[in-house]
C-alpha cells in the first residue's frame, strides 16, 4: 500500500513536470507552423489526448474480457477506473478538437465520420456509467458493464479507420503516413519530436490517473463491504 502511494506520487510529479516541460518546449522553442500559424499548437494537446483515450479504452476492453473470463473483481475495478479516466480524456478530445476545428475549418462541429464516431464512443461510455449506477448487484453490474465495455471499444477501430473509409473533413493520420508500403513521419522532425514527447508524457499522466482512480475504487469497495457487514 505504501509503495503504491509512492509510485502514484512519483507518477504525479513526473507527469506534471513532464507536461510543463513539453508546454515550454512547444510555446517557447518551436517555430510557428506556416499554414496554420499559432493555433497549430493545439495539436500538441489534441493528438496526445487522443492516444491516451485509445489506451484507456483498450485497457477497458482487455480487463473487461479478463473479468468475464476469470471473474476476479480487481479486473472490473481496473476496467471501471480506466473507463472513467478515458471518458474524461474523450470529452477533452472532443473539446480540443472542436476548438482546433474552429480555427482550421471555420466551424466547431461537423457531422464528419471521425467526429461522429468519437462522439458515439463518448455516449457509449456515458451509458456504461449509467448502467453501473442502475444495477445494485455487484456481480451483475460487473458482468453487464464488461459486456458493454467490450462492445463500446469495438468503436475504436472504426474511429481509427474512419478517415480512410469515408470522405472526411478530418485530416488523415497526424504522426505517420504510409507511402509505398512504409510508414513515414508526416511532419518535419522539429515538429514531430515535441509531439512524441507530449504523447509519452500524456501516457504517463494517464497511468497516474488510472492508479489514483483505482486506489479510490478499492477504498469504496472496502467501504461497501464494511457497510454490508454492519447491516448483517
Amino acid at each position: 500500500m505504501a509503495s503504491m502511494k509512492k509510485i502514484i506520487l512519483y507518477l504525479e510529479w513526473g507527469s506534471i513536470l513532464g507536461l510543463l516541460a513539453c508546454g515550454l518546449w512547444v510555446f517557447l522553442k518551436l517555430p510557428l507552423e506556416s499554414s496554420q500559424g499559432f493555433p497549430q499548437k493545439i495539436m500538441y494537446l489534441h493528438v496526445p489526448t487522443f492516444l491516451s483515450t485509445y489506451l484507456a479504452f483498450f485497457v477497458v476492453f482487455t480487463f473487461s474480457i479478463a473479468y468475464l473470463w476469470k471473474r476476479e473483481l480487481v479486473f472490473d475495478q481496473i476496467a471501471k477506473a480506466s473507463a472513467e479516466v478515458g471518458l474524461v480524456f474523450c470529452a477533452l478530445l472532443l473539446a480540443t478538437g472542436a476548438i482546433w476545428g474552429r480555427t482550421t475549418w471555420g466551424t466547431y462541429w461537423v457531422w464528419d465520420a471521425r467526429l461522429t464516431t468519437t462522439l458515439l464512443l463518448f455516449l457509449i461510455f456515458m451509458g456504461y456509467f449509467l448502467l453501473r449506477m442502475s444495477v445494485n448487484d455487484r456481480d451483475k453490474e460487473a458482468r453487464l458493464a464488461s459486456v458493454l465495455g467490450i462492445i463500446g471499444c469495438l468503436d475504436i477501430p472504426i474511429i481509427h479507420k474512419s478517415v480512410q473509409w469515408w470522405r472526411t473533413l478530418h485530416q488523415p493520420s497526424t504522426l505517420f503516413k504510409v507511402e509505398s508500403g512504409a510508414a513515414k513521419p508526416s511532419m518535419p522532425p522539429e515538429l514531430l519530436y515535441p509531439l512524441i514527447a507530449s504523447a509519452v508524457v500524456m501516457l504517463v499522466f494517464y497511468l497516474y490517473l488510472l492508479l489514483l482512480r483505482l486506489q479510490t475504487e478499492k477504498r469504496r469497495e472496502t467501504l461497501n463491504q464494511l457497510l454490508a457487514e454492519i447491516q448483517n
Binding site: G23, F38, K41, I42, L45, A95, T96, I99, W100
Partner: peptide, 10 residues
C-alpha cells in the same frame, strides 16, 4: 484565444 481556451479547458 483558441489556444488559450484549449489549454485552459484541458
Amino acid at each position: 484565444e483558441y489556444v488559450v481556451a484549449a489549454y485552459g479547458i484541458w
